[in-house]
């Protein structure tokens, strides 16, 4: 039951409401499907001016209220992170939903099928949190995607920051859906830095298999520092055979686990092909 709805225009006013237990609402796309019987007071955070994308030399700061449509069209974000963020944002759901879903909502209201969080994890993003009477704090996305108490509780996400480097970064991003607007059955996102022929700083993130995206650490270890070749990829993909999969009605766990392997292989190949051409 929604007992009140506030639309503050100053961050301080929003923080004061959130500190007393009100709930932040951004895109609101999950507001009415949440089966909560709790009496809640909502704080609309879409009028706080947090809808800007700011590109600096070493990072891009994406305001909490940036919609996925806006992110998908953000041609000003340079390099690999820009290309990956645009590709992932454009792949999400349908156009009207992309016009509503916000970057912060995709993190705070994490759904297992969400397409942006795996990408943010692969990009080593950090989440900026604001709370009343406290200095802003930054939290690694990995910690924010874990279960349990989240750093923004009692406050709000203000921005998501993605680092930009001069290194030769490449990515591969693959998702599999039954129809273009359906939820992902599995996603795989690879980022790495090219060091001559060698793969460095390899991140392989699997999404939509479990409640939250996760890095495939064993697979990453098999690839780190090695030259890309079929044997190295086979060895890495083989480690995905024991991935835990949360069951859902869309496809069997075995199918989705195998799919994750296929998508990971494709993502690695895409990243490598990009590295070879660049």
């Amino acid at each position: 039951m929604i007992r009140d709805y506030h639309s503050p225009e100053r961050v301080e006013d929003a923080l004061a409401l959130l500190a007393r237990g009100a709930v932040a609402v951004g895109g609101a796309t999950a507001l009415y499907t949440a089966k909560s019987s709790r009496d809640i007071e909502l704080v609309d955070v879409t009028r706080l001016g947090l809808d800007q994308i700011t590109v600096d030399k070493d990072k891009v700061v994406i305001g909490a209220g940036v919609t996925l449509s806006r992110l998908g069209a953000a041609a000003d974000i340079p390099g690999m992170p820009g290309a990956l963020l645009r590709k992932a944002a454009r792949a999400v759901a349908s156009e009207p939903l992309r016009n509503m879903i916000t970057v912060a909502g995709n993190v705070a209201g994490l759904n297992y099928w969400a397409d942006l969080p795996p990408v943010l994890l692969a990009l080593d993003a950090t989440v900026e949190v604001r709370k009343q009477g406290q200095a802003p704090s930054a939290h690694p996305i990995a910690a924010c995607l874990e279960a349990g108490k989240h750093p923004w509780e009692g406050g709000m996400i203000a921005a998501v920051t993605v680092p930009l480097t001069q290194a030769a970064q490449v990515f591969g991003y693959e998702r599999f859906v039954r129809t273009v607007t359906d939820y992902s059955l599995a996603t795989a996102c690879v980022t790495m830095t090219r060091d001559g022929a060698l793969m460095r700083n390899v991140h392989l993130v699997i999404g939509a298999l479990q409640a939250r995206p996760h890095r495939a650490a064993k697979a990453e270890a098999k690839l780190e520092g090695k030259a890309y070749d079929a044997a190295a990829v086979d060895e890495a993909i083989a480690t995905l055979g024991d991935l835990p999969v949360a069951p859902n009605f869309r496809a069997s766990p075995g199918y989705r686990r195998q799919l994750a392997g296929v998508l990971s292989r494709r993502a690695l190949m895409t990243a490598y092909e990009w590295a070879r051409e660049s």
Partner: peptide, 12 residues
């Protein structure tokens, strides 16, 4: 901009 009114809070 196209949005979905069934999931948009009216006060927005």
């Amino acid at each position: 901009t196209p949005i979905l009114s069934c999931i948009t809070p009216a006060p927005r």
